[in-house]
Structures are given as C-alpha cells and as structure tokens.
Design a protein around this nucleic acid. Sequence first.
DNA 1: CTGAAAGCGCTTACAG
DNA 2: CTGAAAGCGCTTACAG
Lengths: 337, 337
Amino acid sequence: MVTMQDVADAAGVSKATVSYVVSGSPLISEKTASRVRAEMEKLGYSINHAARVLSTSKTGAIGVLSSAEQNASFSLSLSAYLYGIARAAGDMGYDTMLLAGADGASALKSAALTKRIDGAIILDVRNGDSRIRAAVQSGLPTVLLGDPEDSMGLDSVDADFEEISSTLVNYLYRYGHRDLIFIGWPKMTYERRLNYAIRFRSAMVERAQALGMKIHCIYPENSMADLLRRLKRAVEEYGDATAILIHNDAAVIEVSQAFLSLNIKIPEDFSVVAVIPDKVGVGMQIPFTAMNLDINAIVKRTVGTLVHRIESPDGPARRVLVGQHLLLADSVKRISR
Amino acid sequence: MVTMQDVADAAGVSKATVSYVVSGSPLISEKTASRVRAEMEKLGYSINHAARVLSTSKTGAIGVLSSAEQNASFSLSLSAYLYGIARAAGDMGYDTMLLAGADGASALKSAALTKRIDGAIILDVRNGDSRIRAAVQSGLPTVLLGDPEDSMGLDSVDADFEEISSTLVNYLYRYGHRDLIFIGWPKMTYERRLNYAIRFRSAMVERAQALGMKIHCIYPENSMADLLRRLKRAVEEYGDATAILIHNDAAVIEVSQAFLSLNIKIPEDFSVVAVIPDKVGVGMQIPFTAMNLDINAIVKRTVGTLVHRIESPDGPARRVLVGQHLLLADSVKRISR
DNA sequence: CTGAAAGCGCTTACAG
DNA sequence: CTGAAAGCGCTTACAG
C-alpha cells in the first residue's frame, strides 16, 4: 500500500507537505504541489480513510434509519429515498451507512457511540417515535425526515402536507366542487401516528369546512379488492359527491383501474386530484391533476440540513417544510353553479 | 471520550489487557476480565471504530451497489434487498454502505482504493456489466447478486431461474396443459441483458420444446394499459392456449385486475402460474400457484458468500444458485386429455 | 513556504 | 497471565 510517506520520499518533501497538498492547503507553493501530485499519480496513491478519520475524528459518513416495519417489507418509494440520500450525501462528501436491525433506537445509539457516523437521518418518523429520543440522548446530529408533533429539538424536513392538501381542496373549490370523497391511507397508517397522513387530513378537513365543503373519507387497505369494495360503496352512498381526492401512494396507482372496473369516467363522472411521489407518477403516467412530491428535492434539503447541523451543532433547531408543485392533467371538470 | 487507556487506569491494568478483554481473548484471567468489564461499564466505554480499523486494516463494512437506472427510480423489491443485506451483514458483524452515484464502476474503485470497505455486493448484474470488470481490477472481494454469463472469476449468487422455469413448465405439463401464453418483462429488460430474465425464458422455451408444448410470448411495458392491450390480443389470437405463465414482478401484481377487466376467470378460462418475490406475494395476496423468490434466503447466502470471500480471498470462485419453493394456490386446473 | 514531531486510539508480537 | 512498546497512516499546531 502506498502511503503519504512513500509519496513524500519520492517527491523529496515531508509527509506533512503531502498532507497539505491532499487537503488543498494554499500554503503550499504550486511548484511543490504539482510535483507532489505527479508523484501521487505515478505511485497510485489514495488516502487511507481510517487514518484520516482517526486523526480528525470526523467519519465522513451519515447513517440512515428506516422504520422497522418498512425495512421488513416492500415499499415503492423507500429505495428512491435511500438512493436519493446516498447521492446527495456523496455530493457533499459523505458516505451513507444503512442502519438496519430490528431496533432502530439501539442501532442509532451504537453507531453514535462507536463513532461510525457523524450524523443520522431518520425516515418514516411518527409521533412519539422512540428513535427521536434515542437520537437526542446520543447527542448525534440528527435530522428527521418527517414532521412529528414533537421533534424534541431535532431538525426536521418534510413536504408541506398542510399546504399540499389546502392547495388541492382550494383547486377543487375553484372548479365548483362542494362535495368530495377522500381516499386516505389504511386506518393503520393513522393509528401508527404517521404525521404526514394526519397533517394532510386535518388540514384538508379544516380547509373544506372553511369553504363550506363536504368530505366523505374512506380508508382502503392495501389491496385492490378492498379498494374496489370501498370505492363502490362510497360512490353509491355519497350521491352528491362530484370529486375524489387521493392521498395514498398505493391506491393512487390502482385507482385508475378501479375506475375502469366500476365504469366510472374521469372527469365526466368524477373529478380527481391526488398526491403522488414524483417518479411513481412519471413511471406510471398517472393521469390525475396532482401535487407532485419531489423526493429528490426533499432528500437534498434533508441531507443539506444534516450537514449544516454536523458543522454547527449548536444552532437553533430547524423545521423545513418543502413546498411542492401542482401538475395539471385533465382529471378535473368545472361544475357550473 | 473514554479510551482504553482510561479503562486501563481505572482497572489498574495496561491498555493491552483491556484490548484483549474487548476482543474476548481467553488469555486473560476471568478475574481480571470481569474487573475490566466493570470499569468499561462504569465509565461508559465504547471502542473507537476508526482506531480499530487503522490498526487491523479491516473496515468491518461492505458496500452495496445497485444499478444506476434502479437507483434513479422506484422499485418494489430493491429496498427489500437492501435492508435484507444490511440485516444479514449486521448479523455477521459488518456495516453496510450504500454506494450510489451515476457511475457504479468508479464508485466501487474509489471505495476500494480508500479502504472504506472490505468487500462489495453488486445488484442487478447484467451480462457484460462494466462493474464486474471494475470489481476484478480493484481486487476487492466482491459477490454478484445475479448470474451473468461471464462472472470473470467473481462469486455469484442468484435464484436458480432455470430450475424455477422448468418447475413451472413441468407443473403445467403434468396438469395437461400444452399451449401457454408467457407474460415476460418489458423488451428492454432482455435488451439490457439482465440474465435472470434471459435464463428464465431460455430454460422455459427449452423445457417446453422438450415436452412438445407451445409457448406464445408477450412483453408488456410497465403500464396497466399496455398489459391489458397485449393480454387481450394474446387471448384472442392464441385460442388454443389454456395456461398463462408470468415472470414479471410488476405485471404479476396487475394481472389479477387485468383478468377481472377482461372478464377472464381463473382457473376456469385459464390456468395461471407465476414467479413472485415473496413479500410482494404475501402483502398483495396474489392468488396464483407460484415459485416464491425468497429474498431473505438469497441475500443471506449473498452476504455469507461475501464474508467467506473476505476471509479467504484465494479460494475458487463460487456460483451459488438458491433453490426456491413452489407455493400452491387454486389457479391451475387439470386438463383431461 | 516546509519539516520535525506529537498525537488520534487501537492491536499485537514479544518479553517476562 | 500481563505489560511495555512499536506500529497502523494520517493531521496539525509549532518552529523555522
């Protein structure tokens, strides 16, 4: 293995000088620096990461913690989040470590204690999440991807779900709709206190009430059969409804097909608006007017916030709500009134 | 920060002794060891990972490399692979690093050069994959998750797709079917030389020919609309077909719904067999007789193979084909002849 | 602008 | 069974 000492010997300088060249210190003359660089090139030198970590006590790595349930199962967008984070981190000079294991809280503590990571991102944060406390206790710079009621002084980044739902409700209102069916997540999602679902629904209901609109909520489980059943019943039962609002990543994919099955024409029979993770939408060509969750933008902000926190641990906590865009399609018709 | 020296001082021993206690050396008397452990506990000692790495030159980490396209987009099972690997690695004492970045080959080389990882797993390997050569050149212990034509001397682990397709064809044959429709992956998958698709199809065709069966292949794109169109046409065109064989993770989820739309009854009108990633199947309750891809078993074998390779770099290359199980459902009827 | 030297916190022959 | 000591490959005041 080629070390700094080897390069130093070959270039006729000390290893301190080589170190300064590697870190790009302006103190070294260009003449010396280029000679050193030439030798590095010639000898095929690469820095030894562990040695640098030991002497700087910066690991150059961040940890990512998904929820236990998620990492046990399939998720359409989890891998998009993970790789988005890894790419954004790489761009900022950090490696990304996957923190798996049944117990997220203890995985976090252990990684922090043994100084394997400089900071962490917690995914799928819920209200009262035990991992929040673990992060606080460990003293590790940590950003929550999600927006829980109580972030215990940690930074958080999430899409602005209250804004998102208000925008969709307002949009339907402007097009004359006054009576909506809401397709939400499975009941379980709300019970697990995933705050994006809760915030979205609350803001939606509040906004609708303020505008004098009616909303009927259904919560299909993750199966086509259940979606069909509940949707059919809702359509029959709520005869005055003219529009459907969807916040459920799985359902938004299947619902087109459900409409087809139930012989519902969009937008003739119902107007439809939705929330969709961007790449799902692109891949599947979901033809609904929708608020597009820009996962890339969200993860970039998340990593940026974490890096900022690592570099200045003592600043005030940030709560970042990333605004999202409305993508128009032909799924909403105007109701004259 | 508490160091070994602190513990040693408190326990009245040398730090060498503390080090031996941490690594569980049997040379230390139980009396001394327990005293040292008590002090570690009391002082809240945790080993400094970087220091250990530097002195042992073992990083205790493996890298995972997915394909560039995949990490840009959504995948239902990618996160299951990633977390499965991270958990299996954790169980064997390794951290897992996500190697992202547009160019997998150079990400691999750089991680190897700077000694950030002890080994790597390459996902979604295709024939002629440039990452294979990069891994070989870097000298990094590497296992391919996938079974390319030429693994260039690297270890590989994959489900045994030839066995899987033969089993399914044989099964249909035994039930009297002689004329099949095959729903494969999008054309692109074969063109990208993803060998699982290619191997499966070849073995299927070969087996069918050997048994005197006919196969009609369709390759739907990843959209419900395209699936419906092609399936409808196939059903009309191939009037003698009595069974459908599916190898396409996306289609297998949507096809139930397609049958419903096209008013096709299973197994009355068609018998159906499929290949499904296990958890997708469980989550979605896909009601087809199917070969179940046990992702957990596959990733465990993959990590095991990598760890073995790390520990004995010079053994002969292994090619591991993991056998899979047939799960029976009521989607196949017997054709009397 | 450059070098000598101490230090980061471990591990591991070696000596006793 | 235990300790003194060298070594892993960097970084970084400090002196010049």
